[in-house]
Design a protein around this nucleic acid. Structure first.
Lengths: 300, 300
DNA sequence: GATTGAGCATCAAATTATTTGATGGGAGTT
DNA sequence: AACTCCCATCAAATAATTTGATGCTCAATC
């Protein structure tokens, strides 16, 4: 009753390497010494390969083990595969100076105004061969991460569920933006005064509710906007020289509008701006580098 | 005390295949079912690969195991290698009609006259894309096999030592070739009569001694040649219209010289013409085919 | 031809690696 | 919160590999 043939799937890289060494030294005994194993271990492994490949692989010629024609073919591929394994085992290295990859950042208007210029500038400085793509994140930022459409997501999101990682960049709050000549510019606003103003409401769409709206509604109020706009873009022109008031993130107001004034809002709706990424990019050297760079650029 | 990292050389093709199936199904449990193993065997193998490659390889996203960036790289190479193993496991097939290889036959004058035309014709008929090279074998035919300079050797050689295989094609003997008008043409020659003739001796060189010379010397005789020549080439012209006698293999004499006659030699020096090849080509499909073709062509 | 030594094949015992089956913790859904 | 699914981990069982001993084959030498 002969033993069943060995399963070829059980051939490992050690066996392929043993084949290489036997071929190189033309002797099982010498190969055993070089590999620091017993001679019979070499016999066992060659016997296994002989059975798998249905070929003697080595034959005695003039006192040496000489490879068969078929063994030469098998050996050529084995050498290839051993090289491939070596490459696979190299640590995931990332050299910014040599890199040519594209990175895709999902974010919205706020980040595009306040953060992307600094981030892009830093990327170009440290990794001049890389390219950057900025895509919208509203409503489906997390899906974009999962679908590998984006490498990172930046915004007021901090999902704790599995599959994502996040890192808080900084805290942010809402403030009132109005013309410097507005009678209440710089004054301390109570809730009633605030609610009686002529508000410009930014409706981001996709059911998004800003944190300050949630806070004032939780306090039992309702904001009746005078004007509704889909984006902060063009807000400065709209408010300048008027009695309109827009409630926007403080950092977006400060330093971005010349004749306008930023005043505390009685419903600041504090929130965190975070960097979010999918778990499958967490261990990647390039992604780690990118995240560190974004962290530095936004905290710098 | 952590366990030592596994040796990457112990990664086998089963592990690479398991990586493929987990990736495809996005689930350890589903992969286990498909592969007909226990779920914990999948965990064990993935854990081993994780340790070897220093990467989580799969992370949970939305209830599925999703590959990391590094896993995608490793998987691409794994698929390549699995394909390579499949190719390596294919039986050594040889299609004469599609083949384009060269075959090299080592032999000498006798074989070039009597056998090579038929062999070449058969090769061209069955494997029209193949090429044939004929090289001299005198003195070092066996070395040419060992050095892979020749695929087969044909001649009066039958080495029994290890490293070679041989197959007898047919038996041959020496006979006397003389002019048809020679007074002893067709007569039965005794030893003294034979030895008194005017002999043409073919001295092949390299210390080669023909079997009939060995036989007559073993019987205590010595042949004194009238003429010595290094090759049977041109022998017909030399002997025609003369009283010279050449002792050559019977088949070489018969049918090759018009006005000449072949007569039995009292020292026939019987020998075998064999096909010889090195052990390392023994299992090769192409070589087997070639040997069978030569056998058929010579035994016609 | 006989002898000797080298080297491969094979065996049983020892060791290591892998697989099985049980269990519990984590994640997702209701 | 309860329930279910799935992966991680554990100990025991099983399989594969390695060790060390032995014998057979081959090549070299006398």
């Amino acid at each position: 009753m002969p033993p069943p043939p060995p399963n070829p799937a059980s051939i490992d890289f050690a066996a392929l390497n043993l084949l290489r060494v036997v071929h190189e030294l033309g002797s099982f005994t010498a190969a055993a010494e070089k590999l620091n194993v017993n001679q019979s271990a070499v016999s066992y492994t060659i016997a296994k390969l002989r059975a798998c490949f249905q070929d003697p692989l080595f034959v005695r010629e003039g006192g040496r083990q000489v490879a068969t024609e078929r063994c030469e073919d098998i050996l050529a591929r084995s050498l290839q595969m051993l090289g491939m394994l070596d490459e696979m085992l190299q640590p995931d290295a990332f050299e910014p100076g040599q890199a040519t990859q594209n990175v895709t950042i999902a974010c919205n208007y706020y980040e595009r105004m306040l953060m992307i210029p600094g981030i892009v500038s830093a990327i170009r400085r440290h990794a001049p061969g890389m390219t950057v793509k900025v895509i919208s994140s509203l409503g489906d930022g997390h899906l974009r991460l999962l679908r590998r459409e984006a490498d990172v997501l930046i915004g007021p999101f901090a999902r704790a569920e599995s599959g994502f990682h996040s890192r808080r960049l900084y805290s942010e709050e809402y403030a009132c933006l109005m013309d410097a000549a507005h009678p209440l510019a710089g004054a301390r606003l109570d809730a009633d005064t605030y609610l009686s103003l002529n508000h410009v409401l930014i409706d981001y769409g996709a059911g998004w509710q800003s944190a300050y709206l949630r806070e004032l509604e939780a306090a039992g109020h309702r904001l009746l906007p005078t004007i509704t706009t889909p984006s902060p873009a063009g807000l400065g022109t709209l408010i300048s020289g008027s009695d309109l008031v827009a409630t926007i993130p403080r950092r977006l107001g400060e330093g971005n509008f010349e004749d306008l004034r930023v005043t505390d809002c009685p419903f600041p709706g504090a929130f965190d701006v975070s960097l979010v990424w999918a778990a499958h990019t967490n261990a990647s050297a390039m992604h780690r580098w990118l995240r560190d760079l974004i962290w530095t650029a936004c905290r710098g």
